[in-house]
Design a protein around this nucleic acid. Sequence first.
DNA 1: AACGCGGGGCG
DNA 2: CGCCCAGCGTT
Length: 330
Amino acid sequence: MCQQTRVDTVIPYYERFLKRFPTIATLAKAPEDDVLALWSGLGYYRRARLLHKGVREVVSAYGGAMPSDASARLGLPGIGRYTAGAIGSIAFHKEEPIVDGNVKRVLSRLFVIDTPLGRSDTENAFWEKAQHLVRGDRPGDFNQAMMELGATICTPTSPRCDECPVRRHCRAKKEARVYELPVVLAKKAPKIVQVVAVIARAVGDDDAAWLQRCDQALFGGLWNLPMMEGEGRDDAQEALRKAGLRGKLSSRKIGDVVHILSHRRMHVEVWTAVVTKQRGTMTRRYVRHKALKALGVSRLTQKLLATGAPPSEESCSCRSRRAHDRAACG
DNA sequence: AACGCGGGGCG
DNA sequence: CGCCCAGCGTT
């Protein structure tokens, strides 16, 4: 969960997740929908799918116990250098390094590593330094201390060098280059995408909306509304058709939603439709609002569904459940 | 060696 | 509004 996501954001998800899946066995046994349901809103949903896949492999290939061997760990889905090192150093007390965003900042300053982040030579330099430093009988504590140092003292914009326990060893401080490190390359501007989405309800049943589980890269494994790139009524109609639905589209869009991702800026037109009743399949079906929390759903989908339901008092914990369900599905 | 992949909180 | 976060897998 902590891959590219702040610890403070993760904590409530983590608590809920471990309450529901306290062991490798329970997680391995669970359907993917259950796993994604608890991940909903956290983002980077591939992490959840890889975790699930990895845990199943731990069961099938290693008898349900995380392998202590480093290369075996690295071979598991979802486990890269960082996670392998975290497990190795913290769980197995092995002298394995950890390099995360915090550690990169600390090391780049400590040793003046001034090549750009993300470049392989730069990244290798970090791992080499970290590997060299993690010596002793408490590698887990050392690694966590490095991350903590980066999180609390050696911060991106306002480092507190006067309080830094390793200030005397810091080459960047000595050379007054702390503020120029690490070197971050300019990131590409997010691509703007115009999208139409349709909240489709069956005739005589306004309590459920048609969702389909997509497997493509964006929001893979999650349940989404019929959606496609485009704008206007014709494209909304096309989205409905592509979803395999027949029915009447609303005369106008009912709203617009802007959704910001790190690499995309999505402008979404929200339409509604009343469609002929239809049986669902494994990957597409009507979902009642109450059943929504049992499935993986992105924030975007939550926003889109909420567009048809102006918040009465509180957004989620309504007293009148039925009215809320009805409203939230358009 | 680059790039795609969410979402939120803070300056 | 921009930045960056206890990264990983794919191309």
